[in-house]
Measured scan of single mutants.
Amino acid sequence: QTVHVKGVQYHFPNPEEAVKFALKVAKDLGGRVEFHGDEIHVE
């Protein structure tokens, strides 16, 4: 599972961890989380 944050990719073997990370980052940055297939983008 890959999380993209402002052009940087973070790889997580566990999808659940990836989602938790993405939600935390989005909250910290005041952004939103978008799901694109296997990828999660924080915009």
Rank of each mutant, 00 (worst) to 15 (best):
K27N: 11
V19I: 15
V25K: 07
E17H: 06
A26T: 03
E34R: 14
K20G: 05
P13V: 12
A22F: 03
K24F: 07
Q9L: 13
E17S: 09
V33H: 02
E16M: 10
P15F: 15
I40R: 01
H11K: 09
E39V: 11
I40F: 04
L23A: 08
T2W: 10
A26N: 02
H36T: 07
G7S: 05
T2H: 05
G30M: 08
P15V: 14
E16L: 10
E39S: 11
P13Y: 09
H41Y: 14
K24L: 10
R32A: 06
K27F: 12
E34H: 13
G7H: 06
Q1C: 15
E34F: 15
L23F: 14
E34V: 15
A18K: 00
E39P: 02
D28R: 13
H4C: 14
H11N: 09
F21N: 01
Y10F: 10
Y10H: 05
A26H: 02
F12S: 00
G31H: 04
G7T: 04
V5E: 00
K27L: 11
G37Q: 07
T2V: 13
Q1D: 05
A26I: 05
E16Y: 11
V42W: 03
A22T: 00
V19P: 02
K24V: 07
H4Y: 15
P15T: 13
A26M: 05
P13E: 13
E16S: 09
H4M: 12
G31S: 05
Y10M: 03
E43F: 15
I40S: 01
E43W: 14
E16P: 04
D28Y: 13
V25Q: 07
N14I: 06
K20R: 12
V5Q: 01
A26S: 05
G7N: 06
V19G: 03
N14F: 06
H41Q: 04
H36Y: 13
P13H: 11
Y10A: 00
D38S: 12
H36V: 13
D38F: 10
H11W: 15
D28A: 14
V3N: 00
V25Y: 06
F12P: 00
R32Q: 07
N14C: 08
F35H: 05
A22P: 00
E34W: 14
H4T: 13
F21E: 01
V42K: 01
N14V: 05
E43R: 14
K6V: 06
E39M: 09
F21Q: 02
G37D: 08
V3I: 03
F35V: 08
V33N: 00
P13R: 12
R32S: 08
V33I: 13
R32P: 02
E17G: 04
H11D: 06
L23R: 10
Q9K: 14
I40V: 05
Q1N: 13
E16I: 11
G31P: 01
E39F: 08
A18Q: 01
H11A: 06
V5C: 05
E34S: 13
V8A: 08
Q9E: 10
E39N: 09
V25R: 06
F21P: 01
K24D: 08
K20H: 07
G30A: 07
Q9N: 07
E16D: 10
T2A: 06
K20W: 09
Q9R: 13
K6N: 15
E16H: 09
P13N: 13
V25N: 03
V33D: 01
G7C: 07
V42G: 01
N14D: 10
F12N: 00
G30P: 06
L29H: 06
L29I: 13
Q9M: 13
H11M: 09
P15M: 15
V42S: 01
E43D: 08
K20D: 07
E39Q: 12
N14L: 06
H4Q: 07
G30W: 06
F21T: 02
D38G: 13
A18I: 01
E17V: 07
L23S: 07
V19Q: 08
Q1K: 14
E34Q: 11
L23K: 10
F35R: 06
V42A: 02
A22K: 00
E17C: 09
H11G: 04
R32E: 05
V25M: 14
P15C: 14
E39W: 07
V8W: 08
Y10S: 02
D28I: 14
K27P: 01
H4W: 15
Y10P: 00
G7P: 03
R32G: 04
A22H: 00
K20V: 08
E16T: 10
I40K: 01
E34Y: 15
E43Y: 15
E39C: 11
A26F: 03
E16A: 11
F35K: 05
V3C: 03
